[in-house]
């Protein structure tokens, strides 16, 4: 067992590091140009926020419609912490996440004890309230004119180097989010969370503290969304309350549903696809939004459960299968816990 865990950790570290080096090199040499580098980085931010939403909507089964609001809290608080208090970026991003988590906790306390669609309605309201607050707290947020001059990740003047640095930051946080979410899902609280999705009454009768685990999942979700927001703020350098409208919240729901509710791999694929296809469709000029809508409809027609359903692609399994066919054949017994990315084929 211990040997397995060690092997998994090594595999995942090596995989993520080599993927990082590959992409960073491609950006650095200009094979992925700045525009695509930009999209890749933006996709990373979308993936972080969508993963956070998947935690509450996909794994816990509670529909939340206000993640753009959480992102806004994270974005504005990170930006203000950096600009007013001169805090370095990493602590500022985490502080932004924590502030957002507090907001999540405050909203969760009255609503998560209830069952049904209350969370959807409350978070919907929350998203709008946050936007209005951002507009009216003019001294702090710049009001409707927006907040200008958030310092970027790097300002070296070399655009390609800047692109690589931006990408590295966001990539690092994507890995962080991935590790947190997938480990959480496979831990004992994670199993409790999934059981709530499957049946609240049954899990309650099994001794699971339903409101507590819902709160836990929701606060965690808010925390990660806040981190995504903080990165977004630094990444764009300009914030406007209108960037966090209701439609943006819906976009994240679309990503989660498209990828498959309760699939981490699905969310990653859908997050990248969603960001990229919108830009790629620019070649269709005026028809791009029509085609985009058609693409969404056809995905839902052909894959009603989303691209991945609740399945995952496990890097560890793939590596085992193709590189260690003989050596580890005795070890590859099913159900071995992976420490990083998931391998839970069909949690249901």
């Amino acid at each position: 067992m211990k040997k397995n865990r060690f092997f998994n950790a090594i595999t995942l570290t090596v995989t993520s590091a080599s993927l990082y080096i590959l992409l960073a090199l491609l950006i650095f040499t200009g094979i992925i140009d700045e525009y695509n580098g930009q999209l890749l980085t933006l996709a990373g931010i979308y993936v972080i926020v969508s993963l956070s939403l998947n935690l509450i909507t996909g794994f816990t089964g509670q529909l939340a419609l206000g993640h753009a609001g959480f992102m806004a809290v994270g974005a504005y608080s990170t930006a203000i912490i950096i600009m007013r208090l001169n805090v370095p970026m990493i602590p500022a991003v985490f502080a932004g996440g924590l502030i957002t988590a507090i907001f999540g906790l405050l909203i969760g306390i009255p609503t998560l004890r209830l069952r049904g669609d209350y969370l959807a309605i409350t978070t919907l309201g929350f998203g709008e309230i946050i936007r209005v607050i951002m507009v009216n707290l003019e001294g702090l947020t710049g009001g409707a004119a927006g907040l200008k001059g958030v310092p970027p990740f790097s300002d070296s003047g070399d655009f390609i180097l800047d692109a690589v640095i931006k990408f590295s930051w966001v990539y690092g946080f994507v890995i962080f989010t991935l590790v947190v979410v997938s480990n959480l899902i496979k831990s004992s609280p994670g199993r409790a969370i999934i059981s709530i999705r499957e049946d609240e009454i049954a899990s309650n009768s099994m001794g699971i503290n339903v409101p507590y685990y819902k709160m836990f999942s929701f606060t965690m979700s808010a925390f990660l969304a806040g981190i995504g927001g903080g990165l977004y703020a630094i990444y764009f350098g300009y914030l406007n309350p209108q960037m966090f409208g209701f439609l943006n919240s819906v976009n994240f729901v679309v990503i989660v549903v498209l990828g498959g509710m309760g699939s981490i791999t699905g969310t990653i694929l859908a997050g990248i696809g969603f960001t990229y296809i919108q830009e790629w469709l620019r070649i269709f000029k005026d028809f791009r939004l029509v085609i985009f809508g058609l693409a969404l409809i056809s995905v839902m027609l052909f894959w009603p459960k989303g691209l991945m359903g609740t399945n995952e692609i496990s890097v560890v399994k793939l590596v085992r299968k193709y590189f260690f066919k003989n050596k580890n054949s005795d070890n590859s017994s099913s159900g071995s816990p992976a420490s990083g990315e998931s391998q839970s084929e069909g949690v249901r």
């Binding site: 700045e34 525009y35 933006l42 300009y238 406007n240 209108q242 960037m243 620019r282 000029k285």
Partner: peptide
């Protein structure tokens, strides 16, 4: 010509392109 949908995020993408 690139479309920005009157959305700052899309504007940045269009600009980069």
């Amino acid at each position: 010509v690139e479309d920005d949908e009157a959305n700052p995020e899309k504007t940045v993408n269009a600009f980069k392109k």
